[in-house]
Design a binder for these strands. Structure first.
Length: 423
RNA sequence: GGAGAGGUGGCAGAGUGGUCGAAUGCGCCGGUCUUGAAAACCGGAGAGCCGCAAGGUUCCGGGGGUUCGAAUCCCUCCCUCUCCGCCA
């Protein structure tokens, strides 16, 4: 959420940012409401001042037993009260309208975010490793997974629906191994506190991180109560400290494994075969809470932590930066990490590392005390560390052998009971 | 799921219609004292909103109501605790 004061004083900058994002919002309408709101508040508060003084006087009159005068005073205060009720109601209505606009306004892109029209305009920042060459015909991961009985897509579709794969045998163990490997790396080397949060969150939490109200259609909603299946651990992790004043003298870093649930309406098709796009998938997520002046630097550290996962696994990846048109709703700046998958011959996004500035903190009221003891909004950042399915795709496709087996990276073997190859 | 108790400032905990944004203790910040620290003593200190400011206003779990006036009375929702039931 943007600061209404900021919008008031920088409406041109906000409009320009919306254009760069190819987003729309009624900024002028918002400013008009803001004006009305402040006028109503000012009038209501003046009347309240009067009423408070009058009520105090009535108290004094009652005490000295001057009933007649007290009754007369009551009568006049009552009409004041009626007017105050009307104004308070007005303010409530205007607040509601303002909220309905401002909650739909995306974050301002950072000054350093490149302006662009489409994802084609996302600059590639760096590429690490190289494309492997094969002296046999490479298979796509769905063939490998089927032959080695790692994933059962059909039974997943039967028991739940398409996009809900069942991992079995070594495939299931690989999921568990990857989760443990990544969490161990982040907790023992990157300074994270491991968290196991709920996998469903309430509407306040979803609003705090920006999923609601705009993206309700992307989530699974539990009919019984206002609960949603989490689309990412970012939601419970960030909302851990919603409505709290926390200590961020050093960055507060939490990491969690959770399944993630996404409706992905209309996403089925050729481009999304196998494990490329799912309704339920596993992910390890990292969330940081930092002082505002540290968030840019922390963003670079965070992307490094995510990259470290891929380096340890020996995978070829590249880092791109999202341009204004491709930037997520709540993010001010975002890097994506993409893995090369030779079977499907595509770059696959496995991590999105974002700096949200104070956008989420303002929505979720997450603050810290500055050097003067005054509460200020923190900056939040998060990054996938990393998402499993496409990581598995890259591992299977890059490490496949002519004999149909798949070599496991050394870093994973301790988590696979010493196994060196799948199959 | 049933019955009961309760939700007040960073924490503990008073307050049952007006002088209460709220006693007291702990913790915190500043000062005195001390070589330094502790102790003791003195002083300070909640958050949001409106306002250039002075200042005003709102907030005692959330929402609604009664009243001239609500932390205090009523309704409702949420949460916590205790006991019972059930259960991995």
């Amino acid at each position: 959420m943007l600061d209404i004061k900021f919008i008031r004083e920088n409406s041109d900058a906000v409009k320009e940012a919306l254009i760069n994002r190819q987003a729309e919002a009624d900024v002028d309408g918002l400013l008009e409401l803001d004006l009305l709101r402040r006028a109503a508040i000012t009038e209501a508060e003046e009347l309240k001042t009067e009423r408070n003084a009058a009520s105090k006087k009535i108290g004094a009159l009652m005490k000295e037993g001057n009933k007649a005068e007290a009754e007369a005073a009551k009568e006049s205060v009552r009409t004041l009260g009626d007017r105050i009720s009307v104004l308070d109601e007005q303010v409530r209505e205007i607040d509601e309208k303002i909220r309905n606009i401002i909650l739909y306004i995306p974050n301002l892109p950072s000054d350093t975010t490149p302006v662009g029209q489409t994802e084609e305009d996302n600059p590639i920042l760096r590429s690490v490793g190289e494309k492997k060459t094969f002296d046999f015909e490479v298979k796509p991961h769905w063939d490998i997974a089927e032959e080695l009985k790692l994933v059962d897509f059909e039974r997943g579709a039967k028991i739940t629906g398409s996009g809900f794969p069942v991992y079995m045998g070594q495939g299931a163990k690989l999921q568990r191994a990857l989760i443990s490997f990544m969490l161990d790396l982040h907790t023992s080397e990157h300074g994270y506190t491991e968290v196991e949060p709920p996998f469903v969150c309430n509407a306040d939490s979803m609003t705090g991180t920006g999923q609601l109200p705009k993206f309700s259609e992307d989530m699974y909603h539990i009919a019984d109560g206002e609960l949603y299946l989490i689309p990412t651990a970012e939601v419970p992790l960030t909302n851990l400290y919603r409505e709290e004043i926390i200590d961020v003298e050093t960055p507060l870093k939490v990491a969690a494994y959770t399944p993630c649930f996404r409706r992905e309406a209309g996403a089925a098709g050729r481009d999304n075969r196998g494990l490329l796009r799912l309704h339920q998938f596993d992910k390890v997520e990292m969330v940081n809470f930092v002082k505002p002046e540290e968030s840019a630097e922390q963003h670079e550290i965070l992307i490094g932590e995510a990259e470290n996962v891929l380096q340890r696994l020996g995978l070829h990846y590249r880092v791109i930066e999202l341009c204004t048109a491709d930037l997520g709703f709540s993010a001010a700046k975002c890097y994506d990490i993409e893995l090369w998958a030779p079977g499907v011959e595509r770059w696959l996004e496995v991590s999105s590392v974002s700096n949200f500035g104070d956008y989420q903190a303002r929505r979720a009221r997450i603050r810290f005390r500055d050097e003067n003891g005054k509460p200020q909004f923190v900056h939040t950042l998060n990054g996938s560390g990393v998402a499993l399915p496409r990581l598995v795709v890259a591992l299977l496709e890059n490490n496949q052998n002519a004999d149909g087996t798949v070599t496991l990276p050394e870093a994973l073997r301790p988590y696979m009971s010493g196994l060196e190859r799948l199959g």
